[in-house]
Design a protein around this nucleic acid. Structure first.
Lengths: 79, 79
DNA sequence: ATAAATGCGGTAGTATATAACCGCAAAAAA
DNA sequence: TTTTTTGCGGTTATATACTACCGCATTTAT
């Protein structure tokens, strides 16, 4: 039985979206700057994926931020 | 064909190990504080896994650091 | 010397992340 | 209004992360 990581996935997705929104990049613009498909980035933002490390790095490239910035938000509830 | 993420995996593993070493925690101690198996943490440290987001969060719990700290190292070469 | 702790390799089964598409409905731009 | 952009849901196939074990060889402690 796999643990429930829905909140983790949803929170990560929201954070990605807020970074993308703040840069005013469309999904396709981000996708064009990394090796990801725009529809998959959409799924990530909507909390549908438990992304892998390599995908986090790609997202950071597409969003032009340091990878650690993608995890800079509140995790207090689950720690 | 999947891209070669070996360097990403290896660098992440080294970083995890350096944090664990600095805290002087054994693999089993870290494992006891999160939902991971000690032998799998060993594999992560040795660059054998492209870990998922949930695993990064679990590692952070086990190592008692904020998840973003697990990505705070140099990525310059691949960005 | 004996016992305990440690790192780590192996395994099998299951779940799921991802790539790479398609096409639509709504919003924005022309 | 027509055109373009945008977000997003769906699909299929493949790779691989993960769980949860076992046991060994080396190191460290007693």
């Amino acid at each position: 039985m796999e643990r429930d990581y829905n909140k983790i996935k949803a929170d990560f997705g929201s954070h990605i979206r807020s970074i993308r929104d703040s840069k005013k990049y469309s999904l396709r613009v981000v996708a064009s700057k990394c090796n990801l498909d725009d529809s998959n980035i959409s799924k990530i933002e909507n909390g549908k994926f438990n992304v892998q490390l390599s995908t986090i790095i790609e997202l950071a490239r597409g969003l032009e931020v340091h990878p650690s910035a993608l995890l800079e938000y509140d995790f207090s509830f689950e720690m």
